[in-house]
Design a protein around this nucleic acid. Structure first.
Length: 277
DNA sequence: CCTATCACCTGCAGGC
DNA sequence: TGCCTGCAGGTGATAG
């Protein structure tokens, strides 16, 4: 469940549930989830700290702890569960457990084990953290403008699908929402960056924010969940216009939605609404 | 600089 | 039923 709206939903849910909670100790069952520091250091440093702030930048969860910052990337399948001490659960895919002082547990679940956790000393700016070095502006960052997008796109031979997925330019949208952004902006996913006007960049930025905000309102998108996870199953999939709709008709013009592969990623679009190239 | 491929992992759907 | 292939909301490293 990893794009910006889903991550935002997780942040909001966790803030309600574990704000101020203190970590007593941590168990790690799959070491590779902990990116930095080493597993033992990670456990030692975070034990005794409390959750003080809940934020997000791009697809990263940013937990401000009393002494450190815990950054988590859910990648493809990462989820958090909050459970009471003696709740029964299938521990097969639980790889990290934060034992809270009040007896509850914050459990990290990840069937594919792709997710990563980073524990750092606090820094002044988000981009000072090593894992955020190559991340561009968050889609909702006030500093992000259409002129900036234009400056990144207008000399590029890359496709708009690829450019919109590039987290170093704009962070947050992933495969689902990029398809939706292209559709709503009237852009064929194979359009080259250098064919996109400054005015179109303004449309892209507005549509990006409109779509992401809409998805957040519905709690994100769940297209393939095997288990439900505490308030993070979204309903936005009902509002998708093109993604995962191959063979169905376009809600605007009735044309059959097509699926192509762009940079190894499934890409859905309406051949009528998304012309050009 | 860019593209293509693999690596990291697991499970599910569909074809035979 | 079982085997095999392809596919999945992500990203980073490496080879050419």
């Amino acid at each position: 469940m990893p794009e910006l709206p889903e991550v935002e939903t997780v942040v909001r849910t966790l803030e309600k549930q574990i704000s101020k909670a203190k970590i007593e100790n941590v168990e790690v069952f799959w070491d590779n989830i902990i990116a930095t520091p080493g597993v033992q250091d990670f456990k030692d440093k975070i034990s005794g700290q409390s959750f003080e702030g809940f934020g997000r930048y791009g697809k990263y969860l940013i937990f401000t702890m009393s002494e450190s910052v815990l950054i988590v990337h859910l990648r493809m399948e990462g989820k958090f569960y909050i459970r009471n001490k003696d709740d029964r659960y299938d521990s097969k895919h639980i790889h990290v457990i934060f034992h809270l002082e009040d007896g509850r547990q914050l459990q990290y679940h990840d069937t594919r084990k792709f997710g990563k956790m980073y524990l750092y000393n606090k820094e002044a700016n988000i981009h000072d953290y090593p894992c955020m070095k190559s991340i561009g502006y968050d889609a909702f960052d006030e500093e992000l403008t259409s002129s900036y997008l234009y400056s990144k796109y207008h000399r590029s031979q890359k496709t708009m699908k690829q450019l919109l997925l590039d987290q170093a330019i704009m962070a947050g949208p992933g495969n689902i929402y990029v398809d939706e952004i292209c559709f709503s902006s009237g852009i064929h996913p194979l359009t080259r960056g250098n064919k996109v006007s400054k005015a179109k960049c303004e449309v892209i930025l507005q549509e990006t924010r409109r779509i992401l905000n809409g998805a957040i309102k519905y709690g994100g998108t769940t297209i393939r969940s095997y288990t439900s996870s505490l308030g993070v199953d979204g309903r936005f999939q009902l509002h998708l216009k093109v993604h995962k709709r191959e063979g169905e008709t376009c809600k605007v013009c009735g044309t059959e939605i097509k699926r192509i592969v762009v940079n190894t990623r499934s890409t859905y679009y309406c051949p009528t609404c998304q012309k050009k190239r």
